[in-house]
Design a protein around this nucleic acid. Structure first.
Lengths: 351, 351
DNA sequence: ATCACTTGTGGGAGCGCTCCCACACTACCT
DNA sequence: AGGTAGTGTGGGAGCGCTCCCACAAGTGAT
């Protein structure tokens, strides 16, 4: 009967079956050509490709996903309330990298927000249902249960910013240690000796590494590390203000400040101004992130740039490899799945 | 044989069929409960819901998509090279709104980049294959073929920033006209009379509306519009610098500048400084967007804030309605599918 | 008691793919 | 000649749903 044909015909897009009929081959053969199997003769392949082109055939994703038990989709999980991630330039730059790398693929990108408890609940269900082939995780806290859930479910995942030196998930990070070192070495070269550091949130591994870089750069230069010159911040502007006030109280002779983020530096700058300290004459200032704020600050802020777009690309690379291997890196022992990318110090007039 | 059962059992998640068996009902009934059909008795519904909870059942999206010919996914199409869209705060704020509104839904969000020609080609295929139920379109140019493609394919779509007053697609926009008016009225109230305007890209409808608001605010205040005080920009910082130089040359007596974006204002500010004009004493400055740059500028920039997060939410609302109605608004005549949201002037010390 | 609805329910028939087994053919060995 | 591998191909079975037809049971009018 033509009954089922009538349905398929009316406004519908061509199916595998129709391509097969047109090319005079079987369904299996068309499937093989579509999926790039080598077990097809050149002549047959050409015939099928011609039929595909003539009919404008596009595979039905849902049917494929159902039959093959894969989704051809990856999720970028965004911890929404984390304003830091949404801050310029992190989010958009990473998305640029992710997008450009994904452009060469059949993979599609899902954006999943995991802010509220309800959203996290939904995400867990989502992952349990294996509705994506892999997950990109950004700016995760040390105590976030998500990464462990992921490795437990054996879902390929890549994390940006490992939770610790012993991160079990594949990860991509910028060289926080080296970035901090370059900032401090720059200030030392400028002649500063009383260099303070306003840290980031210390439950973020990268923030710890920046402290390490700060300490060791001083040590290696033969400058004693003064604990009074280290004040905990939280990446925010407010935290920067608070920390700077504390630093001025404890160490009035401070002659440079290395802040763990640009907005933190902006907060510090305001307090320094109010205290009558000139930048950079009295106190040199260096930030981290090289955001729009750094460029537009008065004076323009020297800052450490992270190759965020490149990090996005690297994350996709890693993830696609894991998906191809069809199992998470965690179970593969200690292969090379920790990527660390170099930072760059962008010198401006604040130092 | 147990052969197919073994496959389904091992590590697999429960299927509709298993839920049905557990609840002692048929497949159809479970499907009805899952999809909220009213044609189910309360007792049966309760039994099915219990079985669902016990088994931790989650419907298979692919199977549902295949059978029902819908995807439960919407796409946010991002014209990537358009740096304006990626600029703070537009992108992240809109995403926040979209995400929060989507949290109440089963819909998932796909991010599609339509920058290069190849990406656009892929997008067209994607849409032709009806792989999403609806599309969110942001910052589209007057001559972009995408919106027309969408209405031709009869895919529900909502555009942020209509292409013209006669936009046929459903749209959400902020009140560009009113926002510009409020900025100019503010400057007039401050006593300024030689108020210049650096426009945005004039192929963007919103930029035109801002010019309209500028003109009419002056006119209504009895101040003649001097064409020499209007200079075309393009939303960028560089454009702001260029335009400001031109304005200073043509109209050295300018006492206020209303810029179509904050970064444009930043560019203008730099040129004003270099020309020795003090802000706000000699020249008052007002921007548009209320971005991070506005808050951190020296002096902090008065700016027009758009309710971007709310716009994101409104877009989702509109889109979901269209999807529910299963046909694009274009074919429904001139119903109320143009949403315009109010702006707010954030006064700071630059004016 | 008969007919006509209505309400709730079960289950067959697909949706468009992929997977895999079966089968022709063609080599190339013994 | 009879085996033993390959190579390329067709098509059945099934993935887990939704849709819809069939049908049982209840309700009220005739």
């Amino acid at each position: 009967m033509a009954s089922h044909g009538a349905r398929g015909r009316s406004g519908g897009r061509p199916t595998l079956e129709e391509v097969a009929a047109r090319a005079g081959v079987g369904r299996g053969t068309v499937s093989r050509v579509i999926n790039g199997s080598p077990r097809v003769s050149d002549a047959t392949r050409a015939a099928v490709e011609a039929a595909v082109a003539e009919l404008g055939y596009v595979p039905n994703t849902a049917a494929r996903a159902l039959a093959a038990n894969r989704t051809d989709a990856i999720a970028l999980v965004v911890p929404e309330p984390e304003t830091r991630f949404f801050a310029e330039p992190y989010f958009s730059d990473m998305l640029k990298g992710v997008g450009s790398e994904l452009a060469d693929t059949e993979m599609q990108l899902l954006l999943i927000f995991a802010g509220s408890d309800r959203e996290r609940e939904r995400l867990a269900q989502y992952l349990a249902a294996h509705r994506v082939d892999g997950v990109l995780l950004v700016s995760v806290h040390a105590d976030d249960p998500l990464p462990d859930l992921l490795s437990q479910l054996e879902i390929p995942a890549v994390i940006s910013g490992p939770r610790s030196a012993a991160e079990s998930l594949a990860s991509v990070d910028s060289d926080n240690y080296g970035g901090a070192r370059s900032a401090v070495e720059h200030l030392l070269a400028r002649g500063c000796r009383r260099i303070a550091h306003i840290t980031g949130r210390l439950d973020v591994y990268g923030a710890q590494r920046r402290v390490d870089g700060y300490r060791e750069a001083l040590r290696d230069a033969g400058v004693a590390v003064d604990e009074d010159l280290i004040e905990a911040g939280d990446f925010t502007e407010d935290g920067g203000r608070r920390a700077m006030r504390e630093l001025l109280r404890r160490a009035p002779d401070v002659d440079a400040v290395f802040a763990a983020s640009d907005v933190t530096a902006a907060g510090a700058r305001q307090v320094l101004r109010e205290a009558g300290r000139r930048i950079p004459e009295d106190v040199a200032l260096v930030g981290y992130d090289d955001s729009a704020i750094a460029r537009h600050m008065e004076p323009p802020l020297t800052s450490v740039r992270q190759p965020i777009e490149e990090m996005g690309r690297a994350m996709i690379d890693l993830l696609l490899t894991e998906i191809a291997d069809r199992r998470p890196a965690a179970s593969r022992g200690l292969e090379r799945h920790q990527v660390v990318l170099a930072t760059e110090l962008v010198e401006r007039t604040s130092s």
